[in-house]
Nucleic acid binder design. Structure first.
Lengths: 223, 223
DNA sequence: GTCTATAGACTGATAGAC
DNA sequence: GTCTATCAGTCTATAGAC
């Protein structure tokens, strides 16, 4: 079982180094030195540097997608097969934002790795993201059930803009902090989620929504 | 003056190759072969590969920033020192979206280069983008003049979300087309600008706005 | 099956002749 | 200003030891 040990050591070392220093500055030689294994072990276990990066990213992004779908499923069941549009947006952007902006984002290497992946977007990661369409289709379907009257294009634009706000907030976290001179609190994750969800809902329904008083934007778009 | 000729040949070849094949797949040797100059000429004229990329990006992005500020200035003068919030957002996202999604985006290498720069985001380009804060401050100031009652944090979030939608639309153009199965028309640049501006304004003021008089959004969403 | 040692092809950068 | 030659460093691939 030395196999799993070596494999795991490479994965751990790679994730930590990429999280700390970015994809551009970390060589295979840095990784094998940290993991205390031989250079060729990377090729033996993963085939290539790109496939190592791909495996790291797939592992983490599958976990996020699972969380998203669990939240979506729960919201649809609570609504008897039809979730509120706010709950759908919350299931879409919540897990990502919590994972990348949450208090764990300082300590957890997994979180810092995903932030890097968001910002630097290296080829093997782009290839994986391009296959994410099937996952997003499930949210498009839920939106169609939630707002059956809307033109489909409007729903897709709404989905697209919600993701835009979430990802751009992760990517440009530092810049927004500097631009606003700290007036935008990037540590208040739940507040940010509220904000993104509220804007997404308002954009789609034309109604101004407040953040959750205590927990939900419940059924405000019912009319 | 053979100097300027060589320099220009390198810049042209590099921009075209990067636009066509991306930053990851183009080597300095590819560039000098296309430009018909010697390998060492790149280092002589630009210092390094990264500085060559930086010069390409700075040139193009200064042009966009100039367009943005011209539109902003015109809008403020037309409003007697206070531009409408919709005109401010339009000046912010219009030039970028027109440059990267417009009909020229197929033909113009400059446009295709900027799309690449948006998607791949290599280190030298990220460094330049980080210095963009001063430019954005001018839009924040205009927003403050336009909506003096608003909390500053709300204004910054509005600015941030507007940029998020514009850039994410450029970055994920292909994915949105695939996801929506063509129902989102990515060739209708002015329609997209209307949409981004409308969502940005609605998010900030809670009021549904009309697109430009001739805009398709206005017609569809009037009620 | 697991890992090591080593070689190969390619990269960006540079010294020094012209 | 330009070019040749060469550098050190990178990823990849493979033969062969354990």
């Amino acid at each position: 079982m030395a196999s799993d040990q070596t494999r795991g050591a490479i994965l751990n070392a790679a994730e930590r180094l990429y999280a700390d220093r970015g994809f551009g500055d970390v060589t295979l030689r840095d990784i094998v030195a940290t993991a205390n294994v031989n250079l060729a072990a990377v090729n033996y276990h993963f085939g290539s540097k790109d496939e190592l990066i791909a495996e790291l990213f797939v592992t983490r992004s599958l976990a996020t997608n699972r969380e998203r779908l669990n939240e979506l499923k729960a919201a649809e069941q609570a609504g008897g097969g039809r979730a509120g549009i706010d709950a759908i947006f919350r299931a879409l952007v919540g897990p990502t934002l919590r994972g990348c902006l949450g208090p764990s984002s300082e300590s957890s290497t997994a979180a810092r790795f995903m932030i890097r992946a968001s910002i630097e977007s290296v080829p093997p990661i782009r290839r994986i993201k391009n296959r994410e369409v099937d996952h997003l289709r499930k949210f498009a379907a839920a939106m169609r059930r939630s707002l059956p009257g809307r033109a489909e294009a409007d729903l897709y634009w709404g989905l697209h803009f919600a993701l835009a706000m979430a990802h751009h907030t992760i990517r440009e976290r530092e810049r927004l902090t500097k631009l606003s001179e700290g007036k935008c609190d990037l540590d208040d994750v739940e507040g940010i989620i509220d904000r993104v969800v509220a804007v997404s809902v308002t954009a789609l329904t034309g109604e101004k929504v407040q953040g959750r008083p205590s927990g939900k934007l419940a059924a405000r778009e019912a009319h």
